[in-house]
């Protein structure tokens, strides 16, 4: 039986477990994106960090304008498990629409395209993570907003702030080889889910 870890007490083991899961999930998501675009997509060296919420602006580029897709993660056993947050800088969101739609002038169309990409990325992420852990992990339909990177996510962070003053974030960047497209993928699990991952990975008896 494992006790509920609180995020501020997480150590290397918890962060490694999160990295392992994140790597597999985002790896699969990168493959899906690459197939969809017909271009090679590379994944940066991921980071897993514990961030004190008041210092989030040091970690998320707070005032950068992004197109952001947020999905909730639900695992069958524990219910709500956390969030996946994918952001596209303005330039990349335009470029993605140009590749997929041939033109980026209709903002509504661009928005739905980005949501659909977010949908595909989060589904791939959940598939791979679920397969690795032997669980059922489902993404909720995506929510979408275009604003300051921190303003898009603050409703989600508020949700997590009810339980803790800290969030744990797994973050990696997806980059297309010609540097025209980039996306930031963040996995923000709740503490229950990280404890569950640890148990499933056999890192805790």
């Amino acid at each position: 039986m494992i006790g509920l870890h609180s995020i501020e007490d997480f150590g290397e083991m918890e962060l490694d477990a999160l990295k392992e899961l994140g790597n597999i999930g985002v790896g699969k998501a990168a493959t899906s994106l690459s197939q969809m675009l017909g271009r090679r997509i590379e994944m940066s060296v991921p980071e897993a960090v514990i961030v004190k919420i008041p210092e989030l602006h040091k970690y998320i580029n707070a005032e950068e304008m992004v197109a952001g897709v947020v999905t909730g993660l639900e695992d069958i056993e524990n219910g709500h498990s956390g969030f996946l947050y994918i952001t596209f800088p303005e330039k990349s969101s335009k470029k993605l629409a140009e590749i997929l739609l041939g033109d980026s002038s209709d903002e509504e169309m661009v928005d739905s395209t980005l949501m659909e990409i977010g949908n595909i990325l989060s589904s791939s992420f959940c598939d791979a993570a679920a397969e690795m852990l032997g669980i059922v992990l489902l993404p909720t339909p995506p929510s979408f907003g275009r604003d300051f990177a921190i303003a898009v996510i603050d409703a989600v962070v508020s949700q997590l702030a009810e339980k803790s003053d800290y969030v744990v974030i797994f973050e990696t960047k997806l980059e297309e080889s010609e540097n025209e497209i980039e996306a930031l993928v963040m996995l923000i699990p709740n503490e229950k889910f990280v404890s569950y991952i640890l148990k499933l990975l056999g890192m805790v008896e």
Binding site: V70, G72, D111, M115, T140, P141, P142, S143, F144, G145, R146, D147, A151, V152, D154, A155, V156, S158, Q159
Partner: peptide, 16 residues
């Protein structure tokens, strides 16, 4: 207290 999401599926995010 803004409502940033243009498309929103999770009602709990309506916190503004």
């Amino acid at each position: 207290g803004a409502q940033i999401f243009k498309h929103m599926t999770m009602d709990m995010l309506r916190i503004g």
